[in-house]
Amino acid sequence: MKKKLSFVLNDRKITLEIAAQEVLLEVLRDKLGVKSPKCGCDRGDCGTCTVLMNGKTVRSCIVLAVEADGQRLTTLEGLMKDGQMTPLQQSFLEHNSFQCGFCAPGVILAATELLERNPKPSGDEIKEAISGNLCRCTGYLPIVEAIANVNNALTPPGRERLGKKVRS
């Protein structure tokens, strides 16, 4: 049985009909063509499918699409305003805070939620906030570094010892 639902996705209103058993991640990717949420584990373990629902991160692989009815969703595609990267994205770029980049959409959304609540998080708070987002490449320190630098928050432990020169 199809259900009609509508929600706001990246500031655009969406109305569509889907079956009750459809999973949000699959609807976003396959029906709406929003590809930044990725499927890394399909059971809530890795965080690559992270999207913001009303500003809070959820794992879209374990959310039914019907649950999005009436909600406001944001994916990485919706973070940019007028084609400009957010300061957080800019910081990721400047700190080379990704390697393969597969985890990046989820990590950036998790960090977005964190900075919204806590603009100057400590290194430990950053680590806690992104600990549900698995990254196999970076060893996380460059990610922590990028998040810490967005609002010139406290220097997290490990950062200056990475030995990176400040890039011009």
Binding site: C41, E128, N133, C135, R136, G139
Partner: peptide, 19 residues
Amino acid sequence: NFTDYKIPTAMDVPERVIP
């Protein structure tokens, strides 16, 4: 699965890495 094959999270990294 990652529930029982544990790979490191951000909370499991060394405090200082010196390359």
